[in-house]
Write a protein that binds this DNA or RNA. Structure first.
Lengths: 245, 245
DNA sequence: CCAAAAGTGTTGCTACTACACCCATGC
DNA sequence: GCATGGGTGTAGTAGCAACACTTTTGG
């Protein structure tokens, strides 16, 4: 073991191959609210292991790419999306979570308005937007449901999904992330639907309305909804929190 | 590229060496409250890079060890401590955060009562318990202060420390983590001191008292403080939340 | 006019704060 | 008794939930 007198010499000597290293991946939980229910984008695996089962879009982190950059790259390459709200979620590192080899996965979650997924679903037939629901029997076990029924999730992706839902539920009523799930202009009813879908409860309309208005996050546009066969609601815009930033 | 018909055959064929992989480390933010101020355990680096500077105790994650297990191992081997409250914090993966090579660090934070650090400090002279304070000039930049003044932090460990403090501040008033910073039996005054140190504000005594009692986290022991030259306070014990678990 | 959903006024509850005060102990 | 911090009573305030009500549109 050498002990050179200066840092540059030490670095030149250093052997980065000295130990075996795990692979590092980034997995993305791409979430939205569709028809009053939380939904996540899943991809069907074409290859072993777990061929045919469903996974979160993900990929390995190359040597020269930051974690956040890898997340954005996967968002664009694997999910054909961009510009989402994105946030690091948790890192999953159980030894045997992937049968091929040791893979440590840094999970991110990303939020998008439901209509933004259309292009992605069209571009890649292996993608689907699954409804996330509580399993009827199990207590707080989650299920991903597609057209044909429950989609089996590969690896530990059911757990990742569950952590993402928990984080989302925890943040939705003190932060402004709900707006990332809505288009630029939206009605208060739509905002309430998003909250109800995430929290899984129904909320009192007047109370919700005033709570939101009091927080100062909503900017009235003066415009109104069109196409309704009843009184059209006002459209609001998200005013990025004047307090925080 | 082969495509065997079954999963077992596929796994046998799989070459885990196909791509370069980053190293994965676990770093621990070991926190406490000492004399009314937040504190963290730091180690002085003996070797390059950044020899002489201070770092969070940490180590690499071997191929056959879960992340949480690695965190506990480092707690016991590097910090000579055990049984702490421990929680995954965030994963830091900037490409050049370590000049030796690509290292992705999964940071954990651990909370301990102040007196538990004594043994660790005695066992390893390279360790110190630094006060964490806001830098006087900068707005929300943190400083680690030792006996001799500000301790320079190596790598991106100042940022890790800052994320840990933010997380702690965010959780302290809705979760019961504050109790992890106190001995088994403690007075309400001690609990309030912990809250005030973490939040950096002074709190109203009667309000704090009742808020805590109302949450049902406190179990009166009937015993009282000794050695005070005034009315001795009652000692309480933490009753692990009856609601959550 | 009617149905349907938007939007408002009012009331009451709960959590929390602020302030004033009393209580118990060592010296 | 007195200084010191522990502990309590009382009142006020802010946020929020429940309910009843009015308003505005399409048909």
């Amino acid at each position: 073991m050498t002990m050179p007198g200066n840092e540059a010499a030490f670095l030149a000597d250093y052997d980065p191959q000295a130990y075996d290293r795990p692979s590092v991946a980034v997995d993305l939980v791409l979430m939205s609210v569709v028809d009053g229910a939380p939904a996540a984008l899943l991809a069907q695996r074409a290859e072993h292991p777990h061929a045919g089962q469903w996974v979160l879009p993900g990929g390995f982190v190359p040597m020269n790419e930051d974690l956040d950059a890898a997340a954005r790259r996967i968002l664009s390459d694997k999910a054909h999306l961009d510009g989402a709200y994105i946030e690091q979620l948790y890192t999953f590192g159980a030894v045997d979570r992937d049968p091929r080899m040791r893979v440590i996965s840094v999970a991110y979650f990303a939020l998008l308005p439901a209509d933004r997924f259309a292009a992605a679903l069209e571009a890649d037939p292996a993608l689907t937007l699954a409804r996330i629901a509580f399993a009827p029997s199990g207590e707080d076990r989650l299920q991903a449901r597609g057209r044909q029924g429950v989609l089996p999730l590969a690896f530990d992706h059911a757990e990742i999904l569950s952590v993402a839902m928990t984080r989302l539920r925890g943040k939705i009523d003190y932060s402004d992330i709900a707006f990332a799930l809505l288009p630029e202009r939206f009605t208060l009813r739509a905002l309430q639907d998003v909250h109800e879908a995430i929290l899984g409860v129904s909320l009192n309309k007047p109370a919700f309305r005033r709570r939101m208005l009091d927080r100062g996050w909503l900017q009235p546009t003066g415009e109104r909804e069109t196409g309704a066969s009843f009184r059209p609601a006002e459209l609001f815009r998200h005013r990025p929190s004047p307090v925080t930033s």
